[in-house]
């Protein structure tokens, strides 16, 4: 006998007893001797039992706004900067947007390196044209492609950091607040943190005067609440000395104003290790 139809298996598995006895008997006889159909019947019964046990409604709980920023940040620092995202869907301009290169230096500064060596005259021409367009038109086009809003904000801030414009008085984007980061024991000033307004909200930018030692773990940036009881992780500080993380105004308003960089181990624990390297409190 050929396999029963899926409909017939549903009727057998969870039918309401109204299928004709002769049909039911022949389907049932087949299923007894067929592992595949028996498995399907078991799956259907399991699913029906889950439906029966499903709560009538669920209070859905969305993650906080910071999570998407952490995702794009993670992907941009690890995959765009390190070895580039897969070639599909990305062209050279988009890669430039996420990589702090000469393009992001102020126009007056000499270009230190080309993003890549052009292979043909055509390509060289295209790159030049692209750069001119960018110099005139700003970042709008680049930000409309590539990663979503979170990454767009992040790459803007990374670009600013790379150009060191953020610490200069004539910077077009004024930090909302900034603070020196110092070591907890000797109070040595070894970095800076700033909250800057980006196109999509707020970014926390962090820069250290020299790369921090992550030991055999990694570095994580936190915002501690001034009540001393609560904290949120804003992201992982990739090797290097600068990074930017999208944050929300709500966090600042709620008192998460102490920037903290900790050394974390790869131990699977999402909690703060207690090993803080640098810290500073943003002015109100």
């Amino acid at each position: 006998m050929s396999h029963p139809t899926e409909d017939e298996l549903v009727d057998l598995a969870v039918g309401d007893g109204t299928v004709s006895p002769s049909v039911s008997a022949s389907v049932s006889a087949h299923v007894d001797g067929c592992d595949t159909c028996a498995a399907t019947v078991a799956e259907l019964r399991h699913t029906a039992a889950l439906v029966a046990a499903a709560p009538p409604s669920v209070t859905w709980q969305a993650p906080t706004d910071a999570v998407w920023g952490r995702i794009t940040d993670h992907l941009s620092t690890e995959e765009l900067d390190a070895d580039g995202l897969d070639a599909d869907g990305l062209d050279a301009d988009e890669l430039d947007a996420d990589e702090p290169t000469s393009d992001d230096l102020p126009p007056a500064a000499p270009a230190r390196r080309e993003p890549a060596t052009p292979h043909t005259d055509d390509e060289l021409e295209r790159r030049r044209a692209g750069r001119h367009e960018r110099d005139r038109g700003g970042r709008g086009r680049r930000l409309s492609v590539g990663w979503g809003a979170g990454l767009a904000a992040a790459s803007l801030a990374i670009g600013l950091l790379a150009g060191r414009a953020i610490w200069q008085p004539d910077t077009p984007v004024q930090p909302v607040a900034q603070v020196a980061l110092s070591t907890l024991d000797t109070k040595q000033d070894e970095g800076k943190a700033a909250v800057v307004r980006s196109a999509d909200g707020l970014d926390l930018t962090v820069a250290t005067s020299k790369p921090l030692d992550a030991g055999d773990g990694y570095l994580e940036v936190w915002l501690l609440n001034s009540d001393g009881k609560r904290m949120v992780s804003v992201g992982v500080l990739a090797p290097g000395d600068k990074a930017s993380f999208p944050i929300s105004q709500t966090l600042i308003d709620e008192g998460y104003v102490i920037v903290d960089i900790s050394r974390e181990k790869f131990d699977g624990s999402p909690a703060h290790s207690g090993d803080s390297l640098l810290r500073g409190k943003l002015p109100a």
Partner: peptide, 14 residues
């Protein structure tokens, strides 16, 4: 509806 619905949900579970 019972058949199509249950089969669709079963596919999701799988």
């Amino acid at each position: 509806h019972v058949r199509r619905g249950l089969i669709a949900l079963r596919d999701r579970m799988k």
